[in-house]
C-alpha cells in the first residue's frame, strides 16, 4: 500500500445521522492498522468528538479573523474602500463607513487603498483551537465563540493546526453551506453519512450536489440501513455512488453514543465491520487519487542505490 497521506472528510446533509460515530470509529480503526491518525473536529458550532475520544488537551490558541476598522477622524467619506472591496463588505453612505464582518474575507485591500490611511486591520478572536490526543489518535478541534458567526475562519484555523499524520479524518459540520465547504475544500475524498429515509435521501442529494461541485470523489455510509426504504440504495446505484459501509439500526449503538463511548470499543462485534469498511475506503480513495500526486510505492532499496 502507498504511503501518501490521506485526508477524508466525513460529512452529512443534516445533523444526527451518526457522522461523529462513524468518524471516531474509523479513526480508531485506521490507527489499529499502524497508521498515524488525526481527528479534526470541524463541526465548530457543536463539536462533540471530544466526548468520545476524551483527549488530553495540551495546547490552545485563539482563531482570529482580520477585520478592517475605521478611524473616524481620519476618514473623509471618499468611498474608495467601498469601491475596492470585491466582496461588497463595505458601504459608504452619507460619508459614514459601514463594515459587514460576515462578508469580509480579510483581504486587506481596503486598508491598502484608503487614501487617508483611515482603515486599520484588527485581529479579532472568533473562536478557539484545541490540540491534544486521545484513544491513540491526535485530536484537534475548533470551537466557535458564542455570538460569533465566522465558522469558516475557525475551521480554517483547525486545518492550519493539523499535523502531517498519514490519515486525517475531518468531522464536518452538517448541511451544505459555507462551513462545510471550508471543511471539505482540501480533503482527498468525502464520506457522506446518511439514513435511508425520505428526508435523509433529500439531504443526501443536496450533499452529493455540493461534493460534485467541489469535484471531490465521494462515497456513502448508510446508517440504520434497515430502518427506511430502499430508495437511497437505488439512488446510489443509479448515480454510481459506492456504499462503503452499512450500519444496522441497533439500539445498543444509540446507548453507547449516549454514554459517550466509542462504538467499536463498547461493542467489539462492530470492529470487524469497520475494519472491512476501512479497507474498502482506503482502496477506493487510493484508486481515485490523481496520478501525479501518488508517489511510487515506498522502495527503500531503489532510493538507496539511485
Amino acid at each position: 500500500m502507498m504511503d501518501r497521506p490521506l485526508k477524508i472528510a466525513v460529512a452529512s446533509g443534516k445533523g444526527g445521522t451518526g457522522k461523529t460515530t462513524v468518524a471516531v470509529s474509523l479513526a480508531l480503526t485506521a490507527a489499529a492498522t499502524g497508521k498515524t491518525v488525526q481527528y479534526l473536529d470541524c463541526d465548530v458550532e457543536e463539536p462533540n468528538g471530544h466526548i468520545f475520544l476524551k483527549p488530553q488537551i495540551h495546547s490552545r490558541f485563539p482563531a482570529t479573523v482580520r477585520l478592517p476598522e475605521v478611524i473616524e477622524k481620519k476618514c473623509n467619506g471618499c468611498g474608495v474602500c467601498a469601491d475596492i472591496c470585491a466582496y461588497n463588505a463595505i458601504a459608504v453612505v452619507k460619508e459614514k463607513v459601514l463594515i459587514f464582518p460576515e462578508l469580509c474575507r480579510g483581504c486587506g485591500a481596503c486598508s491598502l487603498f484608503c487614501p487617508q490611511g483611515a482603515l486599520v486591520e484588527i485581529s479579532r478572536p472568533v473562536g478557539t483551537v484545541e490540540i491534544g490526543a486521545g484513544a491513540g489518535v491526535a485530536f484537534i478541534r475548533g470551537v466557535l465563540s458564542i455570538g460569533q458567526i465566522m465558522s469558516p475562519a475557525v475551521i480554517a484555523a483547525v486545518k492550519d493546526a493539523a499535523g502531517d499524520q498519514e490519515i486525517t479524518l475531518l468531522d464536518c459540520p452538517p448541511g451544505t453551506s459555507c462551513p462545510v465547504i471550508e471543511a471539505v475544500r482540501d480533503a482527498d475524498a468525502v464520506l457522506l453519512v446518511t439514513e435511508p429515509t425520505p428526508f435523509g435521501l433529500h439531504d443526501l442529494t443536496l450533499a452529493v450536489e455540493m461534493t460534485r461541485a467541489l469535484e471531490k470523489p465521494f462515497c456513502v455510509v448508510l446508517n440504520r440501513f434497515d430502518l427506511g426504504d430502499d430508495k437511497t440504495v437505488a439512488y446510489c446505484r443509479e448515480e454510481n455512488i459506492p456504499i462503503v459501509l452499512s450500519i444496522a439500526d441497533d439500539r445498543r449503538i444509540a446507548e453507547t453514543y449516549a454514554r459517550g463511548e466509542i462504538l467499536i470499543e463498547a461493542l467489539p462485534s462492530y470492529a470487524p465491520v469497520f475494519t472491512d469498511a476501512w479497507e474498502r475506503i482506503w482502496t477506493w480513495c487510493i484508486g481515485r487519487m490523481p496520478e501525479k500526486e501518488v508517489p511510487a510505492p515506498a522502495n527503500r532499496e531503489r532510493t538507496a542505490t539511485s
Binding site: A82, Y87, N88, A89, A91, V92, V93, K94, F100, L103
Partner: peptide, 15 residues
C-alpha cells in the same frame, strides 16, 4: 447578479 452584498450595493445606489 452580485455574489454577495447585493442589498448593500443597492442601498448605496439609492443613497
Amino acid at each position: 447578479n452580485a455574489v454577495q452584498g447585493a442589498g448593500i450595493q443597492a442601498a448605496q445606489l439609492l443613497v
